[in-house]
């Protein structure tokens, strides 16, 4: 049988890798990618939990997260395109117009 511990370790590590990517990468696209990794880590947990407790709530939650991920990516990528049009590069550190 699959050890719950291992699943948790896997999803947490995926999550951590995602965070590492989020902070270290300066290209907006890669930030979105690492965001996806974090999401996958979480989805894994949901489904594992649903299986562990034997009911379908986890899977329903998985569906919701899926729609969330999809819409988030859509809007994110639209923004990326617009930014690219204005800045011609996607380096996050140059986008500081919203500072205080």
């Amino acid at each position: 049988m699959i050890e719950t511990l291992w699943v948790i370790i896997l999803s947490f590590s995926l999550f951590a890798i995602g965070i590492f990517g989020l902070i270290s990468r300066r290209n907006l696209l890669f930030i979105l990618l690492s965001l996806e990794i974090m999401l996958n880590g979480i989805i894994l947990l949901f489904v594992a939990a649903s299986n562990l407790h034997g009911n379908n709530d986890g899977q329903i939650m998985y569906l919701l997260v899926l729609t969330l991920a999809a819409s988030e990516v859509a809007v994110g990528l639209a923004l990326v395109i617009q930014i690219y049009r204005q800045q011609q590069n996607l380096d996050v550190d140059t986008l500081t117009k919203l500072r205080g």
Binding site: L22, I23, R26, I31, V92, D93, T96, L98, R99, G100
Partner: peptide
């Protein structure tokens, strides 16, 4: 307090983490 809003995305996410 204004000095904390640098506009750098990575600063915000780092502080979050």
């Amino acid at each position: 307090l204004n000095r904390f809003q640098t506009g750098q995305l990575r600063h915000y996410s780092a502080s979050l983490v």
